[in-house]
Computed example of a mutant assay.
Amino acid sequence: MNAEKPPGSKQALVIIGMHRSGTSATTGALRCLGVDLGNRLYKGHEGINDKGYFEHSDLADANDEALSALGSSWDDILLRQENWWKREELIPFAARIRSHIRKDFANSSIWAVKDPRVCRLLPWWLEIFDSERISPRFIFVIRSPHAVFRSLERRDGFSMEKSFLLWSLHYLEAEQWSRNFPRAFVDFDRFIEHPAQELARVEETLGISFPISVENAAPCLNQFLSRDLRHHQERESPESSPVLSLTHALHQSLLGAVDSGQPDSLEMDALWNKMESIQSGFPRALVEHIRSSGSIQGNLQITMNRLMRSWSWYTGKPVRFLERLAGRNV
């Protein structure tokens, strides 16, 4: 599953991590260092990502639509089918992404893309990077699967088993496909405690120079980052299952890579094989139902994306705010 490094000259940082894993805080900190994120970013939601998602809205929308074309969605717990990134249905979305990259980052010395969906779409994105002669570098943001589960449970009502499956799939797939590229692994808890130290380590590990030095960015980092960004603390669960055991082992391997530089590839391959074994035990009817539901949910997500970016949505914000003050759930 390895991809060869493209002979690119442009630098792009790819932020890797599961939803609710601290990638927004990490990417916001990169903006303090002068890394270009583009101008069309999704805004945050109160109580969820107050300071912003730092996702390029056009790129995130294209990812959502690509997933929908695959009969999938952001919370799909199934492994992808073989050579899925070669499917013709994805061609127009790849063209859109290339267009946005050329338009928004042509003059950027270093830019970043942050969208957890990229973890599940990485071989497709690697072909896009290769066609644009872009050399990607990867920043893996590692947050406890328990903390991610607590956040997803609160926001989406997910079970621990589903949250852990998603957590593992995001990191396993991204790790497999990024092996031939420069990578840095960041423990989110350590990053929140010592952001300057961790960003300096990332800079050295990836062999890059941020447009603004970590030292000069300190005031921005101190203003942006705070311990309250770590909304959910880790709490171990007495529950046990093949999925939970796999996720715990994967978490430890990735944390080890923070200090060692890279995870053990043989260990990661063994965990990948365990994931395949777990999924091979899914009943066929369940798999068919998940794929059917994923397509429906993906289309709903695309509709919501378009609605929330429409003028009617923006102009209606004051009315919705007043109605909420009046006690109406809108």
Rank of each mutant, 00 (worst) to 15 (best):
M1D: 13
A3E: 13
A3P: 02
K5N: 11
P6W: 05
I15H: 01
G17N: 00
M18H: 01
G22M: 04
T23A: 01
S24Y: 04
T26S: 10
T27E: 00
G28H: 00
A29I: 02
R31Y: 09
D36I: 12
G38L: 00
L41I: 03
H45N: 15
N49L: 04
G52W: 04
E55W: 09
S57N: 07
D58E: 15
N63L: 08
N63W: 04
E65S: 08
L67H: 04
L67T: 00
N83W: 11
W84S: 03
W85Y: 14
K86V: 08
R87Q: 11
P92T: 09
F93R: 07
F93N: 04
I110Q: 05
W111P: 09
V113W: 13
D115S: 04
V118M: 11
W124E: 09
W124G: 06
L126W: 07
I134G: 00
S135H: 09
P136C: 06
P136A: 08
F138Q: 00
F140S: 05
V141G: 01
S144R: 11
S144I: 09
R150Q: 12
R150I: 07
R150F: 13
S151W: 04
F158D: 14
L166C: 08
W167K: 00
H170Q: 03
L172P: 06
L172G: 05
F181S: 02
P182N: 08
D187N: 14
D189Q: 12
I208G: 04
S209P: 01
P211C: 04
I212T: 15
A217W: 06
N222M: 06
Q223L: 14
R227I: 12
R227K: 15
L229P: 00
H232P: 08
Q233W: 08
E234N: 10
R235K: 15
E239I: 10
S241F: 05
V243G: 05
L246E: 01
L254N: 07
L254R: 05
A257I: 03
V258D: 01
G261A: 02
L271E: 08
M275F: 05
M275C: 03
G281Y: 05
P283K: 02
P283N: 02
L286H: 09
V287H: 05
V287T: 10
E288F: 10
I290F: 09
R291E: 14
S292D: 15
G294V: 07
N299F: 11
Q301D: 14
Q301I: 14
Q301G: 03
I302A: 12
R306A: 13
W311Q: 13
T315W: 14
V319P: 00
E323V: 06
E323N: 10
A326T: 05
G327E: 04
